[in-house]
Design a protein around this nucleic acid. Sequence first.
DNA 1: GCGATAGTAAAGCATATGCTTAACCAATCG
DNA 2: CGATTGGTTAAGCATATGCTTTACTATCGC
Lengths: 110, 110
Amino acid sequence: MLNQSLDLAFQALSDATRRDIVARLAGGPLSVSELAKPLPMSLPAVLQHLSVLENAGLVVSAKSGRVRTCRLEPSAIAQAEQWLTAQRGEWERRLDRLAEYLNSPEGDAT
Amino acid sequence: MLNQSLDLAFQALSDATRRDIVARLAGGPLSVSELAKPLPMSLPAVLQHLSVLENAGLVVSAKSGRVRTCRLEPSAIAQAEQWLTAQRGEWERRLDRLAEYLNSPEGDAT
DNA sequence: GCGATAGTAAAGCATATGCTTAACCAATCG
DNA sequence: CGATTGGTTAAGCATATGCTTTACTATCGC
């Protein structure tokens, strides 16, 4: 499959809990337990969400002593963003060309 | 849940078949069977993918006679795009401020 | 009307997802 | 050392997802 990484990125972002994690990491790196504190679920559940995000390349983490610190990886996010921009952009260019055609003399149903 | 629509949009885009459908619709509206023709699966399966995309607001369709024509809905795509831009943007602004601080006189470990 | 074409509906099934609890390991702290 | 804090692993479970096949309806062209 081409673009399996987009599969993983979009799949990771399809969950509100994981988007919340991403949004909070956008404000700066956090440890696992800091991430888990406000979330209404067990710590292992949060770990599973983090592993989905890491697997998708959206988040990277490193362990120092006994605390694992997580931070955002913007390049994977940018990749998903660019795919969306490309599709919407293409479609909007099409609509523009259509409008242009309809406003041109040959476009009129004269 | 806030932003359930983002759930649906990202979830819809997490499947390669559905992204293929979106990409082809970006080139212009297509009927259900035109969409289904190149896909390696049964027609009902394609219908299910389309219903996911419509449910997410990414695609709209209308039936005329016996043919249903599908087209892209850019506003839902733009919403997902904007969410991504916001998170990545926030993180990159943070990094910029950090770099600025490290380059300033007070940032030096003199 | 009759057959082909375009789409729908329903049921079933294998696998994936999002949690839980229980048990466990490893770095601190007193 | 022993208790606590921070994280990890494994197993189990309910529900969701992505297909399939079968059967059925609605429209178009002759």
